[in-house]
Amino acid sequence: MAFLLKDLIKKQAPLASGHRMCAGCPAPVIVKQVLMSTDHPKVCTNATGCLEVATTIFPFTSWKVPWLHIAFENSAAAVSGVEAAYHGLANKGELPEDMKNAKFIAFGGDGGTYDIGIQALSGALERGHNMLYVCYDNEGYMNTGIQRSSATPIGANTTTTPVGSQSYGKREIRKDLLSIVVAHHIPYAATCAPHDWMDGMKKSQKAIETEGPAFLNYFSPCIPGWKIPADAWRKLSELAVKTCFWPLIEVENGKWSLTGESKRIADGKAEKVPAVEFMKNQGRFKHLFTQKKDDVLALIQADIDRSWDFYRKMAGY
């Protein structure tokens, strides 16, 4: 189903203004895209992280849906517990009318999902809860001051992979979280980039309406973490897809496909843009250009080419 902005604007936004996310952070836009994609009653859980702390500084909350935060590594376990409560209460006829057909959505950053929360995520996916887990991936521990996570790309300057005489930044490739999630054989998993809001909302809608566990990995540029201007997220989101750094992928019942611009590139209808176009205006990669680290830039391009080849093959190209 296509979404029309003229209809969406009439609905209540799920996240009120007055939150203290950084100016220009797309995470609230991601929340908007996910939660506005269906009209179900929704209950959200949130891992500790930027989104959690900045939207709920007591006594203020930006959330207009029931929302729970417990800790960093357990957003998936928390959503399991809420979903279990839903069924437990329903079994006894104690579920309020306004919560019937509710959907359960967990949010977590990449630190809380790829790293410390992966056990809880894997457990929840395996148990088959009727839930959606949304990772907003800003490629590092941004809330604690820009440390590397297993989602940080090669070459990025972070506070735990600082550039120095013996260091060009992070040395390891990103963890392929999507493949790990798909290996649980859940009914729905996808990647999204918030500039392509239609693609993101369609995927969100499918993910929410899927019976059983679903997963979305949402690209989420970070203003201070990537050292980019406050109005840069949309353009970078677009470039991440155009360079195949962040392909738009959908895996429905084990069937992989590419969507949006990624599909056009795979179909030969659009050019795959060189990775440097995505990297050159980000402060976290600046040293690669000023120090003329062409070997590292080549390494990064090779890594993108490798993963793009992999996803293309998975999608049957």
Binding site: V43, T45, L68, I70, A71, E73, N74, A76, A77, A78, V79, S80, G81, V82, A84, A85, Y86, H87, G88, L89, N91, Q119, A120, S122, G123, A124, E126, R127
Partner: peptide, 24 residues
């Protein structure tokens, strides 16, 4: 009872906290 066979005690307590926070 909705019985959740979690993958760790950490998740056991997390799920209990969430369930109780949900009103169960």
């Amino acid at each position: 009872t909705r019985y959740v066979t979690v993958e760790s005690e950490h998740s056991a307590m997390s799920a209990c906290v969430a369930a109780a926070a949900a009103g169960a």
